[in-house]
Amino acid sequence: MKPICCIKYGLVCLSLLIGLGACDKFNDPSVEFTEVPKNITGTWKIIQVTRNGTDVTGLMDFSRFRIHFKEDNTYAIDNYLPFLVKKDGSWHLDDPLYPFNIVFKEDAADESLVYGFYYPVVDGHRQISLSFKPGCANNIYTYIFAKES
């Protein structure tokens, strides 16, 4: 019995050594991971629109709408459609590394508007997804944007 137990313990020890070796490699100090600040500056166009969960992208011309997020943290809108802000103004993300919200402040407005910010990678490209209620509170619209330039 004793030799068998030794063999068992030996196997366990070998496994631990292999595991520890793997951990050492993973923690290689020469490899550093740094979260990159989310940079949304540029011009974005609408690629999908849902109304109360139903895709209405092909039912209306959304192609001319553009929102320009500028490096000075101002934004401008071309060819306005129902959206979360109506006038041009300023913007910022609540956290550049891990943003959960985007904050808009229209020019001459007293208050800022905070909206949930989703920034998924789809087919290797970043998209922005924003949901809002420009009319009745029971109607929820989601615009998905792709970067144009």
């Binding site: 109304r51 209405v56 459609l81 009319g135 009745c136 029971n138 109607n139």
Partner: peptide
């Protein structure tokens, strides 16, 4: 939708 204002998108 059944409930709208002028700032909704209607069909």
């Amino acid at each position: 939708p059944s409930y709208v204002t002028k700032d909704d998108i209607v069909t």
